[in-house]
Structure formats: C-alpha cells, structure tokens
C-alpha cells in the first residue's frame, strides 16, 4: 500500500524536476532540507529515519534491563555510557527527521500507537548477563553494518547523523565482544550463559537486515535515491562472514548446523532466519512487543505532567522577561 502511495504521488510530480533531482543524487550531491525533493523521497526518509530513531529509544529497554544488575562497577559504567549514547542517537535522528517537516512529538505518537515500527530485535528479551555482551557484539555489529554505508546516503542531515553515530557504535561493539569474551573464557556457568545468548540472539540478529531481497518491497527506489545503499541479503552475508570467525575465536557455536564456508563463493553458506517468525514479530507477536510498547507508553503518559510543568514554567519566565523589558 505504501509503495503504491509513493507511486501515485510521483505521478503528479514534474518529470523534468524528478530527473534533475535524480541527476543530483547520481552525481553524489547531498540533498538538504530546503532543496526540492519528491514527496516519496521525503516520506520514505521520514519512515526510515523515524524507525531508526524509535529503535534507539526502545533499544534502551533490553539493555537498561541489566544496568541495575551489572556484575562489576566497570561493566555498569560501560553499560550506562552505551545506553546514554543510544538515547543520544535517538536525539540526533529525531533532529534529522524534523528537518523533513515532522516533529519529534508526532513521531513519538506514531510509535506509541503502533503506526510506526522499530527494529524487530528489541522485541526479544535479555535473559542473562551474556545477552548484554551479545547485544553489543551482534546487534550493534549488525547496526554498524547497516549504518556505515548510510554515512554516504543522499540526504545531508541523515548522512551527518550517521557519521556521528558510527563513531560511537564501534565502541558499543567492542565492549560487547569484550564482555561476552570474558564469559566464554570464564567458568562453566558463564560459558553456558554465553552460548545461551548466542543461541537466542543469532537469528534475530540476522533478521535485523530485513526480509530477503526477493520479499523486500522498498528496495529498488530507495537504492536509486541512495537512501538504501546495499540490499538486505548483501549486508546479511557480510555480517555472517564477519561474525562466524569471531564466534569460533570465542569457542562458541553458531546455532546453524548447515553453516559452512563455501570456497567457490568466498562466503559462508548459512540458514536464513525463520521469516514467518520475523513477520509475526513485525505484526506485534514477538516475545516482548506488548511489554516494550507498554513501557514506552507508560513513560510518556507518566511524564506528561513533567513536560507540561516545564513548558508552563518556560512560558512564565518568557512572559516575566517580556514584562520587565
């Protein structure tokens, strides 16, 4: 339905203007908020940047779940720093989306009533401490894979947000790998936690790249616009190729009996995630969807008096300043 909407709007746009726009993109120019852009470009970007921002925000929950239980002061500090970064990423991205004419509050309302999505990965629970390591290693690892190419995306504010974000993401992945390595090299109980984390988070991490190319609706146009730089399957393959040797180094086994190096292709052959599970999670039937959205709604509703109070104060202050002038 969405693709259709974009198409019908595009039909009303001036073909010459569209061609000139595409030429700018092809020439590697950045599109800035004040420039003319097709409605479909604007809408697709709002959806993509908004979803990404929401993912950063909802992503605080599974990691926040372990801050109060972090096993050492150093791990607690590292995790706090990381979760603070993620909230900051949300802020950069909401700001980038706002340049397209949608407010942060509007985007938030759309997240809270389910009109907008966030990454499916955050609908999975963090059940043992090794999950925190695995989230940094796999989830941030997959996010980096997605985001590094997006530094070159055609929309200026999005590209600049990605550059800032990528700088911090590599620390996220390193701390995660380091945390799970400590577990994998630790006591038998710790090893068990590390393997359990990998078992549960491997396929959900593969899902982060989105459905298989043959089922992906938005790809072609987004790639022409340089909103999307690689296909889902390309990035997924790259992630598998990077991650499998790391798992081997840790002495952990990837939960895929058919995983093997393919000499001819120069890549690992791997089993796709269960796409029916993926689409269930997207529909709201993941293990944590209900809890995650309820937590965000509660935070927003409980916080209404705070936002109102601070706004009322700011207005009073401005009025007093005005009266004094």
């Amino acid at each position: 339905m969405y693709a259709q909407m974009v198409k019908s709007e595009a039909a009303q746009e001036d073909p010459e203007q569209l061609a000139a726009f595409q030429a700018r993109i092809d020439a590697g120019e950045k599109i800035e908020p004040k420039d003319w852009m097709p409605e479909g470009y604007r809408k697709t970007l709002i959806r993509q940047i908004g979803q990404h921002a929401h993912s950063e925000i909802v992503g605080q929950l599974p990691e926040g779940n372990w801050i109060t239980r972090a096993p050492t002061l150093e791990r607690k500090a590292i995790l706090l720093a990381k979760v603070q970064d993620e909230a900051g990423h949300g802020l950069y991205l909401y700001c980038a989306a706002e340049t397209l004419g949608v407010s942060r509050d509007e985007l938030t309302e759309m997240l809270l009533d389910g009109r907008m999505k966030y990454s499916s990965i955050f609908n999975y629970p963090t059940l043992n401490w090794a999950d925190i390591g695995a989230v940094g290693w796999l989830v941030d690892g997959a996010a980096i894979m997605n985001q590094v190419p997006l530094q070159r995306t055609s929309f200026g504010p999005y590209s600049r947000a990605m550059i800032r974000i990528c700088k911090e993401e590599s620390f996220h992945q390193r701390q995660g790998y380091d945390a799970i390595r400590k577990m994998a090299e630790g006591t038998p109980a710790q090893k068990k936690m590390a393997q359990d984390a990998l078992n549960r988070l491997w396929y959900p991490s593969l899902m982060m790249f989105g459905p298989s190319d043959k089922d992906s609706v938005h790809s072609a146009q987004s790639m022409a616009w340089k909103i999307k730089m690689n296909t889902n399957d390309e990035l997924r393959q790259k992630f598998v190729d990077q991650t499998v040797p790391q798992a081997e180094y840790l002495g952990l086994s990837v939960p895929d009996p058919d995983l093997k190096w393919n000499e001819e292709r120069g890549h690992y052959d791997y089993t796709d995630p269960d796409w029916s599970e993926f689409f269930e999670v997207i529909k709201g039937n993941g293990p944590c969807n209900t809890d995650r959205l309820a937590a965000r709604n509660k935070a927003w509703d409980d916080g209404a008096w705070v936002r109102d109070g601070l706004l009322a104060h700011a207005k009073k202050k401005a009025a007093r300043r005005h009266a004094a002038e």
Binding site: I57, I67, L80, A87, L91, R104, A299, W300, G303, A304
Partner: peptide, 24 residues
C-alpha cells in the same frame, strides 16, 4: 539508573544516565 528508558522526555533519559554514570 532505574529510570533508564522510562524518563518523561528523551533529554531526561540522557541526563539521568549521564548522572548515574558520573556517580558510578
């Protein structure tokens, strides 16, 4: 740090996490 992800507004999430980080 119990507030993480539950604050009234994003800036407060960031500020509370930052304060907690300083305290740790």
């Amino acid at each position: 740090s119990e507030w993480c992800g539950h604050a009234p507004v994003l800036e407060e999430d960031i500020a509370l996490a930052n304060t907690a980080l300083d305290m740790i």
